[in-house]
């Protein structure tokens, strides 16, 4: 059942939130119902932005109609998956998860034979709060996301390193601390699939890479954390995490339906491979567009809060359409982390 409810931000211009996530899912055949948590002209990287966050009362009514008044809609409130991303304040996070709780309470056993604990809708939580030590939601979202995790609704979680640090409450600068934090997500919050993105490469012994850590908890088996090392592209891109999570949902669900072994590791490898192609295309076209517009062939980098450079490096989500179907072995070599 390739139906998914996506709850994240909407921007008219640019590719973050739903704009980065929905098209790739649709291009892969998902019917995406989308609820906008904000309605903005553009993302904040431009330095100016206009629009509104969702009204809590209206959000509640829309969720009520989609989830509880299920008889009137063909989906009957049953989605194959739910994905959430940027939600700007604790009130809205609370409302969204009350309804996800409802959906999980009416859930059905996931058809995958390998993973007995899974139920539909599969829920992917990207606890979007910030990046590179910069918080871009209200402070109270941190505690609210912990409360959400305590409800044990989440099947797949995709925080970046900074968000993981906020959730566990300490700075992560060694592999031991990383392993401890991942175990917290598995054991305390019962999340079976954990993917940590944007890891500082120095922690993995290579400062010229960005790391990604992957871990699946299987009852009765020792936890194995695997890491991927991805070469850095020197530019600031936005929406990368949103695209990553959407692609991960598509790949993981496909692999789970095929009962693939180590589905999460392979899914992440596929996603990283697609991301690299997408970012290289974005970077190349961004440089070309900047050179054409400015008559300057020198190096240009996308910088945050600088609309003049930012605008050239919007993710080429539409132009990358054919990348999203990739289902090969992946171009990266996962390493087992010793901890």
């Amino acid at each position: 059942m390739k139906t998914v409810l996506s709850i994240q931000s909407h921007v008219a211009h640019g590719y973050v939130g739903g704009k980065a996530a929905i098209f790739p899912l649709q291009a892969q055949g998902w019917d995406v119902d989308n609820i906008n948590t904000v309605n903005f002209s553009n993302h904040t990287g431009y330095g100016s932005v206009r629009g509104l966050a969702a009204d809590p009362e209206e959000l509640k009514l829309i969720l009520d109609q989609l989830v509880l008044q299920r008889e009137s809609l063909p989906s009957k409130g049953h989605y194959g998956a739910v994905i959430t991303g940027y939600i700007p304040n604790a009130t809205l996070i609370g409302i969204v998860h009350d309804y996800i709780g409802e959906m999980k309470a009416n859930s059905q056993q996931h058809p995958s034979g390998l993973h007995h604990g899974l139920s539909t809708p599969l829920y992917l939580l990207d606890p979007v709060m910030g990046d590179n030590n910069y918080l871009y939601v209200e402070q109270n979202c941190i505690e609210q996301n912990k409360r959400v995790l305590s409800r044990k609704l989440v099947d797949i979680i995709t925080p970046n390193q900074f968000e993981l640090e906020l959730l566990v409450g300490y700075k992560i600068d060694t592999q031991e601390l990383l392993a401890t934090a991942i175990q917290t997500l598995h054991h305390e919050y019962s999340v079976p699939y954990v993917v940590i993105t944007s890891l500082d490469g120095t922690m993995l012994g290579n400062s010229s890479v960005i790391g990604c850590a992957v871990s699946t908890s299987v009852p009765g088996r020792k936890l194995v954390i695997r890491t991927f090392e991805v070469p850095v592209i020197k530019s600031y891109f936005t929406g990368v995490g949103d695209l990553f999570s959407a692609l991960l949902l598509d790949k993981l669900v496909t692999l789970l339906s095929n009962n693939a072994e180590d589905a999460l590791v392979l899914a992440v490898n596929q996603v990283l491979t697609i991301m690299r192609k997408t970012l290289l295309l974005t970077h190349r076209q961004g440089l070309e567009a900047a050179a054409k517009a400015t008559g300057n062939n020198g190096p240009v980098q996308g910088k945050i809060n600088d609309g003049d450079t930012m605008k050239y490096f919007e993710l080429r989500v539409v132009q990358s359409r054919d990348f999203f179907a990739y289902d090969g072995p992946g171009e990266y070599l996962p390493k087992e982390m010793v901890h």
Partner: peptide, 19 residues
């Protein structure tokens, strides 16, 4: 049946102004 609202003229104005 459905839920939600029409965008106010003010919101449409803001979004276009932002763009």
């Amino acid at each position: 049946r459905f839920a939600g609202s029409a965008s106010s003229p003010h919101l449409v104005d803001e979004l276009l102004q932002g763009l």
